[in-house]
């Protein structure tokens, strides 16, 4: 075991066994993703996320007057005039809890799930190396982040298009853009939110290496997501706010201005990269020194 992973860390450069190992890595990733998306739980979570914007659209359709009061989540009062805003409202509603919840379940399950099912040692019997397994598990969680964000955005756009008129979109700055450009902006927003969740995924991966009880790792990850947001809302702690992984979660609004403000996108990407590197290294340290008993 230890010989295989040592070679793995030294990044072999394209020779015979290394190439074989590289295909093994891609094969492993393919297997991981197909296992993830063949699970009923994954589809249940994606479905639950997709229902959120649909519910919002139906509720506004049934009582359009109630949404004009100016209360409720951002963009809610815009839905009746333009269905494309359903996706935006859906994302605003899902970002604080539902998305971190589902990502926490997937990321917390990565290693601990295999350990509790007794399949972890079989995965490590193949000469794949522990770090490669971690990388594959993390990429699997990242793919889920993309799928989760897109399911809210796409379900919202579809529900809005079915129930409400669709037309040029008003940005936060008061400028109007065409439907085509609004699709580009929506995809950018989805990208922003996906990036926002990568730090949380790394934390979940690390916690997952600490335990053999997947539920514990999931719960701990979700609790951290909530704690981070609570800390971010306390003005007394503003010194640590820029370091909290949830600090830029609502920064996607900056992509809906004219011209686009990329500042928060860059800061968010850098912050998430920091969390990825720190918790990725912690996960590697823990997982490569762990005794795999199950």
């Amino acid at each position: 075991m230890s010989r295989a992973e040592t070679a793995d860390e030294r990044a072999p450069g394209g020779s015979g066994p290394a190439a074989a190992r590289a295909t093994l890595g891609w094969g492993l990733l393919g297997t991981e993703i197909s296992v993830l998306f063949r699970r009923r739980r994954t589809w249940a979570m994606l479905g639950a996320l997709a229902i959120v914007p649909v519910l919002i659209a139906v509720a506004v359709k049934l009582r359009p007057a109630a949404s004009a009061s100016g209360r409720g989540p951002a963009f809610l009062d815009q839905i009746t005039s333009n269905g494309l805003f359903v996706a935006a409202v859906g994302l605003v509603v899902c970002v604080p809890l539902f998305l971190p919840l589902t990502v926490g379940v997937v990321a917390g399950d990565t290693i601990a799930g295999e350990a509790s099912a007794g399949t972890l040692r079989y995965l490590l019997v193949a000469p794949a190396g522990r770090i490669r397994l971690l990388a594959v598990k993390y990429l699997g969680a990242a793919v889920f982040c993309v799928a989760a964000t897109l399911s809210v955005a796409v379900a919202g756009a579809l529900a809005g298009a079915v129930l409400f008129p669709v037309g040029p979109v008003t940005l936060l700055s008061g400028d109007t853009i065409s439907v085509g450009e609004s699709v580009v902006r929506s995809l950018l927003v989805a990208l922003f939110i996906t990036v926002s969740l990568l730090g949380l995924s790394a934390i979940g991966l690390f916690i997952s290496t600490l335990t053999d009880v997947p539920v514990g790792a999931m719960a701990a990850t979700i609790v951290l997501a909530v704690v981070s947001q609570v800390l971010d809302s306390l003005p007394q702690l503003d010194a640590i706010h820029p370091w909290l992984f949830s600090h830029y979660w609502f920064g996607f609004g900056d992509l809906l201005r004219q011209p686009i403000s990329w500042d928060s996108f860059g800061s968010n990407a850098l912050l998430q990269l920091g969390y990825f590197v720190v918790f990725g290294a912690l996960a590697c340290g823990r997982f490569t020194t762990k005794d795999i008993l199950s």
Binding site: A74, F75, L172, S173, G174, F250, G253, D254, R257
Partner: peptide, 23 residues
């Protein structure tokens, strides 16, 4: 443009027109 979280207030002056927009 005053940038707030998920909101913005714009004041635009173009010649003799002054527009104030609140998202």
């Amino acid at each position: 443009q005053q940038l707030d979280q998920l909101a913005e207030r714009d004041v635009v002056r173009n010649g003799t027109d002054v527009w104030v927009y609140s998202s």
